[in-house]
Computed example of a mutant assay.
Amino acid sequence: MKKKTIIKAAAYIISVLLVLSYLYILWQGMHPENISKEYRMYYIEHTLKDWPGNGGLHYTYGTIEYFDMEQEPQIKRSVGGWAEPDEEEPGRWTVGENAGLLYDIDDSNGPVIVAFTTTKVMPGVSVEFTANGEVLGSFEPEADSEYSFEIQSLSAGELLLEFHITNPVSPKELGLSQNDSKYGVQLKSLVIRQEGGSV
């Protein structure tokens, strides 16, 4: 009888240790050390929609990045609200009411200009453009146009640029196709340059 009790106790202890070890492994998998922000956001948190590579969110002022698949470097910093890149499209559409891009930036040491170009626009949409939640301006976009907005200064860290779309519309609503995704603006390129610098 005593032997059976010891065996049961040992089995219980082993089971508890196994469960604890599995929980530890699971915790380690969800909270790994020495990984990049990009890896954590893309593979673990799923908040970054494109894989930019380790360190790929860092941005060098004056670098023109492209939304289409034809030109390099491509913008791979979406945090939601963008259509998948399409080889047949000249840019990338905003989808829904909010589309965001995340940057890791250095101190700007003065004002910077955010400039972007459009290729196509859905009828009747308007856009509010923000940087880290601060409204930089609103506009009614036109196709094949460039827009620019000034930010007084930027401190090193994260910069979240967001396009807030009013009245996005689907191709289905326009009778163009059965696609019911609601689009706003198709963008071709974007650059953040220090004031006085060249595009």
Rank of each mutant, 00 (worst) to 15 (best):
V169Q: 07
V185R: 10
S21Q: 09
L154R: 06
S170Y: 09
F67W: 08
S177C: 02
V125R: 06
Y103L: 08
V191N: 02
N98E: 15
S78H: 13
K172W: 09
L20A: 15
M122K: 10
V16F: 01
F116C: 09
S21F: 01
A115H: 00
K49V: 04
T60S: 07
S177F: 04
G55V: 12
Y24A: 08
D50V: 05
L136K: 09
P123I: 04
K49A: 01
T63G: 03
N34K: 14
D68Q: 04
V185D: 03
W27S: 10
S148C: 07
G96K: 10
T117G: 06
E140P: 01
I165D: 00
K49R: 05
W51P: 12
S148H: 08
Y24S: 14
H58S: 02
I75M: 11
D144M: 05
F116K: 10
K172E: 15
W82T: 06
L187T: 13
H164M: 14
Q71I: 04
I192S: 07
M41L: 14
N179A: 02
V95M: 11
I25L: 07
G133R: 13
Q186L: 02
G133H: 06
G91L: 04
Y59Q: 04
S138H: 00
I14Y: 02
S145C: 09
E45V: 04
L174A: 07
M122E: 12
I25F: 10
F163H: 15
V114C: 14
K49S: 08
V95L: 10
P141A: 12
E128C: 03
L187A: 08
D104W: 12
N54R: 07
Q152N: 10
N132Y: 12
F116Y: 14
E45D: 11
E146T: 06
S126A: 09
S181E: 12
Y22W: 03
V169L: 00
Y59W: 00
E70C: 00
E158V: 06
P73Q: 07
H46M: 13
A115P: 06
A156K: 15
G110K: 12
